[in-house]
Simulated assay, not measured.
Amino acid sequence: MERTLIIVKPDGVQRGLIGEVIARLERRGLKVVGLKMMQISRELAEQHYGVHRERPFFASLVEYITSAPVVVGVLEGPKAIEVTRATVGATNPVDAAPGTIRGDFGLTIGRNLIHASDGAESAEHEINLFFRPEELISYERAVDPWIVEE
């Protein structure tokens, strides 16, 4: 099983979309194995967005993600990264397909509601930034055999 990180960004929290975002991902069949609300510190934001440090938009990314509470979660399932990103939609909501989270709720790139890890390496790195191993819970759901082929 693969794991991925999501962050319901400040705009998603402020707009009251936490439940909608998580529900859409759960309805796809993904399992929530870690979830918490937090205020991201400047230091953590700089680590999280470190790959963009030299880009002109780095400061605004850090400023925005630290501006209000977020909800951080770890999802698990077959191809969790790919499934999550497909459900989230394109980074620019204008390009996101209707039915995706960003396609249905977003208007601009700077307020696109949710972050989702873009690959296995970034998922592992991001999960380790936001969660200690003991905060992630492995468990079986009674519905899993109806979602995942063995």
Rank of each mutant, 00 (worst) to 15 (best):
E2H: 10
R3V: 05
V8R: 00
D11Y: 01
Q14R: 12
Q14A: 13
G16H: 05
L17D: 02
I18E: 05
I18L: 08
E20P: 01
V21Y: 01
V21F: 02
I22T: 11
A23M: 05
A23T: 09
R24P: 04
E26S: 10
R27G: 04
R28W: 07
R28N: 14
R28T: 03
G29E: 12
L30C: 03
K31Q: 13
V32S: 07
V32F: 02
V33G: 06
G34P: 02
L35Q: 07
Q39T: 15
S41Q: 04
L44I: 10
L44P: 04
A45C: 06
E46M: 13
H48A: 14
V51E: 15
H52A: 04
A59K: 10
V62K: 05
I65V: 13
P69Q: 05
V72A: 05
G73N: 12
G73W: 00
G77K: 00
K79F: 07
A80P: 01
A80F: 00
V83Q: 15
R85Q: 08
A86Q: 14
T87Q: 05
T87C: 11
V88G: 04
V88K: 00
G89T: 06
A90T: 00
D95C: 02
D95L: 11
P98H: 04
T100A: 14
T100V: 10
R102G: 09
R102D: 14
G106R: 01
R111H: 10
N112H: 05
L113S: 06
I114A: 03
I114G: 01
A116I: 01
S117W: 01
D118N: 05
D118S: 08
G119Y: 08
A120L: 13
A120V: 08
S122I: 08
H125G: 13
E126W: 04
N128G: 06
L129N: 11
L129E: 11
F131M: 14
R132N: 12
E135P: 01
E135Q: 09
L136M: 10
S138G: 06
R141Q: 13
A142C: 15
V143R: 07
W146V: 15
I147H: 08
E149Y: 13
E150D: 15
